[in-house]
Simulated assay, not measured.
Amino acid sequence: MNFSAKPLWLVGFRPFFILACAAGVVLPVVWALMFSGGLPAPQGRFSPVQWHAHEMFFGFGWAVLGGFLLTATKNWVQVRGYHGAALVGLAAAWCLERVGMAWGGAWPAALFWASNLVFLAGIVLLLLQTLLRYRKQDSFADNYFFLLVLPAFLAAKLLLLSEAHFHAGVTMSLGLFRLAFLIMLERTLTQFMKGVFQVDILRKPRLDQAIKLGAASLVFQAWMPSMLAVVVSVILAMLLLYRFLRWRPDLGFRRIELAVMYLGYLAIVAQLLLESLALRGGVAWTGSLPTHVFTFGAMGLVIPAMLVRISLGHTGRKVVFDGVDRLVVHIMLLAFVVRVVLPQWFPGAYVHWVHLAAVAWSLAFAVLGFRLTPRLLAPRVDGREH
């Protein structure tokens, strides 16, 4: 079968953004029902919390990141990019991983770990091959950070699924996504502000490098002395704030598709400061507050806007957010308030906040998936192949 003849398999973002929307609809609701006892947790190899963290980072998160990087890397190095059977294989491997995480507790160990690692190992190898093979024509000199980030995700995944090293796996996974988001925001906000408002926002190579190096070091936070992690987190947060104030937020907040990027950026700053307080001890929050500030504030706000923007621009459409796209953003803002803010004021209703936040997240990605899927299944409207 010639999969390359189908629009779905022409570019990486097409199948993986559909899978990301499906994961965004299903996974939060399943977790909320597990959390309250309405559904049994997967049995065998990991706790319910491990399942939840893994599925949101490596199920939902990597469907998004995989689709983005498969698309972006080919543009960075000006090559055709993986398509056809390669994408079918990666999408099938992602689906197999979800099956294994749900029902693979009783499988033989070799079969379970094969199902769990084949997608991430496969996509990491393909992305590294692209970046290394065509490095001489790479548009970005700092893509060597991805040579660290991509293999490190495999280590983070294994740590997260180890009961003894779960906390290290979470901090490492979050740190890797944080670094990837900072690189993406640095590149895209510069481009968007130039395109929309014809302004050049602050780009100082030494400052940008210091931010990326600080974020890269915090990938290994779990193995740092606590005080060192506090110092690095605070310094990184201050550098990010300094840059934010010179990135023209007065203009950026005028357009919702840019405003959510700025809010996601601020959520990273807030997560760093909250994490530094937690490392010092003596602070009590309801729920894993620093983690959920990042997952709902950075991932939850930036990802929907990114999916809309890429699905429009890379299918030949004008990148304009309409009323439904703005509705999705507002639902995710509501999810942030319900999951992050309200539990601190009304901790007695924590289970209800978890349920409501899950419903809001699921609803946002259901609307998003309904909007995006027809575009992703159809040819480009401008006549180009991919």
Rank of each mutant, 00 (worst) to 15 (best):
N143V: 00
F119S: 05
F13K: 03
W103Q: 15
L176E: 05
F244T: 07
V196G: 05
V283R: 09
G81S: 04
L154M: 09
L185I: 07
V367E: 01
R255F: 14
A106C: 03
Q43I: 10
L147Q: 01
A109G: 06
L154H: 03
F294K: 06
D325A: 15
L213A: 13
L159W: 04
F336N: 02
A267V: 01
A357E: 04
V293Q: 06
V351Y: 13
V302A: 10
F3A: 15
K6C: 08
L160E: 04
D208V: 11
W107E: 00
Y82N: 09
L334F: 12
V320A: 13
G348F: 12
W62F: 03
G252M: 02
V354I: 15
S115M: 12
V340W: 07
T286C: 12
Y265T: 06
L279I: 11
D142K: 02
W113E: 01
V88E: 10
I183K: 09
R243E: 01
L182P: 04
R248F: 04
L147A: 06
L377W: 12
G348A: 11
R255G: 02
T373F: 10
A152I: 07
F220M: 15
A335N: 00
E186P: 05
L90E: 04
P379R: 02
V231C: 09
V324M: 14
G100S: 10
A349K: 06
W9T: 02
Y265E: 09
L154I: 13
T171H: 05
V231A: 15
A305M: 01
L218W: 03
H52C: 08
A114D: 09
A156T: 07
E97Q: 15
A168R: 01
H54K: 02
A91W: 09
V25E: 09
F370S: 11
